[in-house]
Simulated scan of single mutants.
Amino acid sequence: MRSPNMSGHFLLAPIPESSPDYLLPRDIKLAVLGAGRVGKSAMIVRFLTKRFIGDYEPNTGKLYSRLVCVEGDQLSLQIQDTPGVQDNLMQVVDSLSKCVQWAEGFLLVYSITDYSSYQSIRPLYQHIRKVHPDSKAPVVIVGNKGDLLHARQVQTDDGVQLANELGSLFLEISTSENYEDVCDVFQHLCKEVSKLHSLSGERRRASVIPRPRSPNMQDLKRRFKQALSPKVKAPSALV
Protein backbone atom coordinates (compact mmCIF):
# COMPACT_ATOMS: atom_id res chain seq x y z
CA MET A 1 0.00 0.00 0.00
CA ARG A 2 1.58 3.27 -1.10
CA SER A 3 0.78 6.65 0.34
CA PRO A 4 -0.73 9.13 -2.17
CA ASN A 5 1.21 11.98 -0.56
CA MET A 6 4.70 10.73 -1.36
CA SER A 7 5.30 11.75 -4.96
CA GLY A 8 8.59 13.14 -6.16
CA HIS A 9 12.09 11.92 -6.77
CA PHE A 10 14.56 10.54 -4.30
CA LEU A 11 18.21 10.46 -5.26
CA LEU A 12 21.28 9.04 -3.62
CA ALA A 13 23.76 11.58 -4.91
CA PRO A 14 27.33 12.57 -4.05
CA ILE A 15 27.67 16.12 -2.74
CA PRO A 16 30.48 18.23 -4.25
CA GLU A 17 33.24 19.07 -1.82
CA SER A 18 34.99 21.88 -3.69
CA SER A 19 32.06 24.11 -4.63
CA PRO A 20 32.52 27.71 -3.43
CA ASP A 21 28.84 27.83 -2.44
CA TYR A 22 29.05 24.52 -0.59
CA LEU A 23 27.07 24.38 2.65
CA LEU A 24 27.24 21.59 5.17
CA PRO A 25 24.22 19.29 4.70
CA ARG A 26 21.67 19.05 7.44
CA ASP A 27 21.87 15.97 9.65
CA ILE A 28 18.88 13.62 9.53
CA LYS A 29 18.97 10.93 12.22
CA LEU A 30 16.61 7.97 11.86
CA ALA A 31 16.14 4.77 13.88
CA VAL A 32 14.56 1.52 12.65
CA LEU A 33 12.84 -0.43 15.44
CA GLY A 34 10.90 -3.67 15.58
CA ALA A 35 10.94 -7.33 16.53
CA GLY A 36 13.57 -9.73 15.29
CA ARG A 37 13.34 -11.23 11.79
CA VAL A 38 10.96 -8.60 10.41
CA GLY A 39 13.44 -7.30 7.81
CA LYS A 40 14.76 -4.11 9.45
CA SER A 41 18.36 -4.56 8.32
CA ALA A 42 17.25 -5.74 4.88
CA MET A 43 15.17 -2.57 4.46
CA ILE A 44 18.12 -0.33 5.30
CA VAL A 45 20.57 -2.13 3.00
CA ARG A 46 17.98 -2.30 0.20
CA PHE A 47 17.41 1.45 0.50
CA LEU A 48 21.10 2.34 0.48
CA THR A 49 22.32 -0.14 -2.15
CA LYS A 50 19.19 -1.13 -4.12
CA ARG A 51 20.16 -4.78 -3.42
CA PHE A 52 17.96 -7.21 -1.54
CA ILE A 53 20.18 -9.25 0.75
CA GLY A 54 17.59 -11.83 1.81
CA ASP A 55 17.78 -13.66 5.09
CA TYR A 56 21.12 -13.13 6.75
CA GLU A 57 22.64 -12.50 10.14
CA PRO A 58 21.69 -8.83 10.73
CA ASN A 59 24.33 -6.37 11.86
CA THR A 60 22.15 -4.90 14.60
CA GLY A 61 23.44 -1.82 16.31
CA LYS A 62 25.21 -0.63 13.18
CA LEU A 63 24.99 3.01 12.18
CA TYR A 64 24.69 3.60 8.44
CA SER A 65 25.66 7.00 7.00
CA ARG A 66 25.09 8.38 3.52
CA LEU A 67 24.99 11.77 1.83
CA VAL A 68 21.69 12.07 -0.04
CA CYS A 69 19.63 14.58 -1.97
CA VAL A 70 15.89 14.75 -1.31
CA GLU A 71 13.93 17.06 -3.60
CA GLY A 72 16.96 19.28 -4.08
CA ASP A 73 17.94 19.43 -0.41
CA GLN A 74 21.32 18.04 0.57
CA LEU A 75 21.09 15.85 3.66
CA SER A 76 23.54 13.87 5.75
CA LEU A 77 21.45 10.80 6.50
CA GLN A 78 22.26 8.54 9.45
CA ILE A 79 20.22 5.37 10.02
CA GLN A 80 20.55 3.36 13.22
CA ASP A 81 19.78 -0.35 13.05
CA THR A 82 18.62 -1.85 16.35
CA PRO A 83 18.35 -5.27 18.01
CA GLY A 84 15.08 -7.11 17.57
CA VAL A 85 12.61 -6.51 20.39
CA GLN A 86 11.33 -9.76 21.86
CA ASP A 87 8.37 -10.38 24.17
CA ASN A 88 9.85 -8.34 27.02
CA LEU A 89 10.61 -4.80 25.94
CA MET A 90 12.40 -4.09 29.23
CA GLN A 91 15.21 -6.46 28.22
CA VAL A 92 16.52 -3.93 25.72
CA VAL A 93 14.97 -0.72 27.04
CA ASP A 94 18.32 0.76 28.14
CA SER A 95 19.94 0.43 24.73
CA LEU A 96 16.74 1.49 23.02
CA SER A 97 16.47 4.59 25.19
CA LYS A 98 19.87 5.82 24.02
CA CYS A 99 18.95 5.19 20.40
CA VAL A 100 15.48 6.72 20.73
CA GLN A 101 16.91 9.80 22.44
CA TRP A 102 19.44 10.20 19.63
CA ALA A 103 17.05 9.79 16.70
CA GLU A 104 14.71 12.39 15.20
CA GLY A 105 12.47 10.09 13.16
CA PHE A 106 11.42 6.46 13.52
CA LEU A 107 10.42 3.46 11.44
CA LEU A 108 8.46 0.86 13.41
CA VAL A 109 8.58 -2.37 11.39
CA TYR A 110 6.62 -5.60 11.76
CA SER A 111 6.17 -8.60 9.49
CA ILE A 112 2.71 -9.41 8.14
CA THR A 113 3.63 -13.07 8.69
CA ASP A 114 4.26 -12.64 12.44
CA TYR A 115 1.41 -11.37 14.61
CA SER A 116 3.64 -11.05 17.70
CA SER A 117 5.86 -8.58 15.81
CA TYR A 118 2.74 -6.51 15.11
CA GLN A 119 1.91 -6.52 18.82
CA SER A 120 5.32 -5.02 19.65
CA ILE A 121 4.59 -1.84 17.69
CA ARG A 122 2.35 -0.14 20.26
CA PRO A 123 4.79 -0.46 23.22
CA LEU A 124 7.63 0.74 20.99
CA TYR A 125 5.59 3.77 20.00
CA GLN A 126 4.75 4.48 23.63
CA HIS A 127 8.43 4.21 24.53
CA ILE A 128 9.32 6.78 21.86
CA ARG A 129 6.77 9.23 23.25
CA LYS A 130 8.03 8.61 26.76
CA VAL A 131 11.58 9.51 25.77
CA HIS A 132 10.34 12.48 23.67
CA PRO A 133 7.33 13.66 25.70
CA ASP A 134 7.24 17.13 24.15
CA SER A 135 8.51 16.10 20.74
CA LYS A 136 6.65 15.70 17.48
CA ALA A 137 9.21 13.23 16.15
CA PRO A 138 7.60 11.57 13.10
CA VAL A 139 6.86 7.85 13.24
CA VAL A 140 6.06 5.61 10.26
CA ILE A 141 4.62 2.13 10.81
CA VAL A 142 5.68 -0.40 8.18
CA GLY A 143 4.14 -3.80 7.54
CA ASN A 144 6.96 -5.65 5.77
CA LYS A 145 7.06 -8.89 3.72
CA GLY A 146 3.94 -7.93 1.79
CA ASP A 147 4.82 -10.50 -0.87
CA LEU A 148 4.25 -13.45 1.51
CA LEU A 149 0.46 -13.32 1.31
CA HIS A 150 0.12 -17.09 1.74
CA ALA A 151 1.63 -16.76 5.25
CA ARG A 152 -0.18 -13.59 6.30
CA GLN A 153 -1.10 -13.31 9.99
CA VAL A 154 -1.72 -9.53 10.12
CA GLN A 155 -4.36 -8.01 7.88
CA THR A 156 -3.83 -4.67 6.18
CA ASP A 157 -6.80 -3.21 8.06
CA ASP A 158 -5.06 -4.07 11.35
CA GLY A 159 -2.06 -1.97 10.36
CA VAL A 160 -4.26 0.91 9.21
CA GLN A 161 -6.28 0.87 12.42
CA LEU A 162 -3.20 0.85 14.65
CA ALA A 163 -1.60 3.71 12.69
CA ASN A 164 -4.79 5.76 12.98
CA GLU A 165 -4.94 5.20 16.73
CA LEU A 166 -1.32 6.28 17.13
CA GLY A 167 -1.53 9.15 14.64
CA SER A 168 1.14 7.71 12.35
CA LEU A 169 1.51 6.99 8.66
CA PHE A 170 1.18 3.32 7.65
CA LEU A 171 2.59 1.49 4.65
CA GLU A 172 2.56 -2.18 3.77
CA ILE A 173 5.54 -3.04 1.57
CA SER A 174 7.68 -5.83 0.23
CA THR A 175 11.38 -5.10 0.70
CA SER A 176 12.32 -7.96 -1.62
CA GLU A 177 10.04 -7.00 -4.52
CA ASN A 178 9.56 -3.23 -4.57
CA TYR A 179 12.51 -0.87 -4.18
CA GLU A 180 10.31 2.20 -4.80
CA ASP A 181 8.14 1.46 -1.77
CA VAL A 182 11.23 1.17 0.43
CA CYS A 183 12.44 4.53 -0.88
CA ASP A 184 9.02 6.08 -0.26
CA VAL A 185 9.22 5.10 3.41
CA PHE A 186 12.62 6.69 4.00
CA GLN A 187 11.86 9.67 1.74
CA HIS A 188 8.72 10.54 3.69
CA LEU A 189 10.51 10.28 7.02
CA CYS A 190 13.39 12.47 5.81
CA LYS A 191 10.93 15.13 4.64
CA GLU A 192 9.06 15.12 7.95
CA VAL A 193 12.27 15.51 9.95
CA SER A 194 13.37 18.33 7.62
CA LYS A 195 10.08 20.10 8.32
CA LEU A 196 10.80 19.92 12.04
CA HIS A 197 14.25 21.42 11.43
CA SER A 198 12.68 24.29 9.48
CA LEU A 199 10.07 24.95 12.15
CA SER A 200 12.62 24.94 14.96
CA GLY A 201 14.79 27.34 12.96
CA GLU A 202 11.86 29.73 12.52
CA ARG A 203 11.13 29.60 16.24
CA ARG A 204 14.75 30.40 17.07
CA ARG A 205 14.73 33.40 14.71
CA ALA A 206 11.41 34.64 16.11
CA SER A 207 12.70 34.37 19.66
CA VAL A 208 15.65 36.68 18.96
CA ILE A 209 14.41 40.18 19.89
CA PRO A 210 16.59 43.09 18.74
CA ARG A 211 18.24 44.76 21.71
CA PRO A 212 17.06 48.39 22.03
CA ARG A 213 19.64 51.10 22.00
CA SER A 214 20.45 52.60 25.32
CA PRO A 215 19.05 56.15 25.59
CA ASN A 216 22.12 57.10 27.61
CA MET A 217 24.38 56.02 24.75
CA GLN A 218 22.34 58.03 22.28
CA ASP A 219 22.58 61.06 24.51
CA LEU A 220 26.35 60.65 24.77
CA LYS A 221 26.65 60.47 20.97
CA ARG A 222 24.60 63.65 20.58
CA ARG A 223 26.74 65.51 23.07
CA PHE A 224 29.93 64.26 21.46
CA LYS A 225 28.81 65.57 18.06
CA GLN A 226 27.95 68.92 19.57
CA ALA A 227 31.39 69.14 21.17
CA LEU A 228 33.08 68.55 17.80
CA SER A 229 30.97 71.07 15.85
CA PRO A 230 32.51 74.60 15.35
CA LYS A 231 31.31 77.09 17.92
CA VAL A 232 29.81 80.41 16.66
CA LYS A 233 30.79 83.38 18.72
CA ALA A 234 28.14 86.03 19.40
CA PRO A 235 29.05 89.60 18.17
CA SER A 236 30.50 91.72 20.93
CA ALA A 237 28.67 94.96 21.88
CA LEU A 238 30.13 98.31 20.75
CA VAL A 239 31.20 100.62 23.50
Results as ranks from 00 to 15, higher is better:
K145W: 02
K136L: 11
Q218D: 14
Y56P: 08
H9N: 09
T82G: 01
L75I: 13
I209R: 09
W102L: 05
F52R: 04
S229N: 11
S19Q: 09
D219Q: 15
L24E: 15
V139D: 06
Y118M: 11
E17V: 14
V232L: 06
A206S: 05
G34H: 09
D181H: 06
D94L: 13
E165R: 12
N88G: 00
L89I: 15
H9G: 11
G61C: 05
A234K: 12
S236R: 15
V193I: 10
K145I: 06
Q155S: 00
K40R: 13
Q187P: 01
V193D: 02
Y179P: 00
K40Y: 09
A31P: 10
L108C: 09
M6W: 06
V160I: 14
S97L: 01
V68C: 05
I112N: 01
A13M: 08
L171K: 06
L67K: 07
E202N: 04
V140R: 02
S116Y: 02
L12N: 05
S117R: 08
L169Q: 10
E71K: 15
V70N: 08
Q153C: 12
G39S: 12
R223F: 11
S41I: 13
H9E: 10
L162D: 05
F224E: 09
V193S: 04
L108P: 09
A13V: 05
D134A: 06
D55Q: 14
S97W: 01
V32T: 14
Y64T: 05
Q101A: 14
M217P: 00
K233D: 13
Q218Y: 02
V182E: 01
L11G: 03
D114Y: 02
I141D: 04
V154M: 07
V100L: 07
D55M: 09
T49H: 03
G105E: 08
V85T: 09
I53F: 00
V93T: 03
A151H: 04
F170E: 05
A103H: 05
S236E: 13
V154T: 12
L162I: 08
L23F: 10
V38S: 02
R205N: 03
C99D: 00
E17W: 01
M217C: 06
D73K: 15
R37V: 05
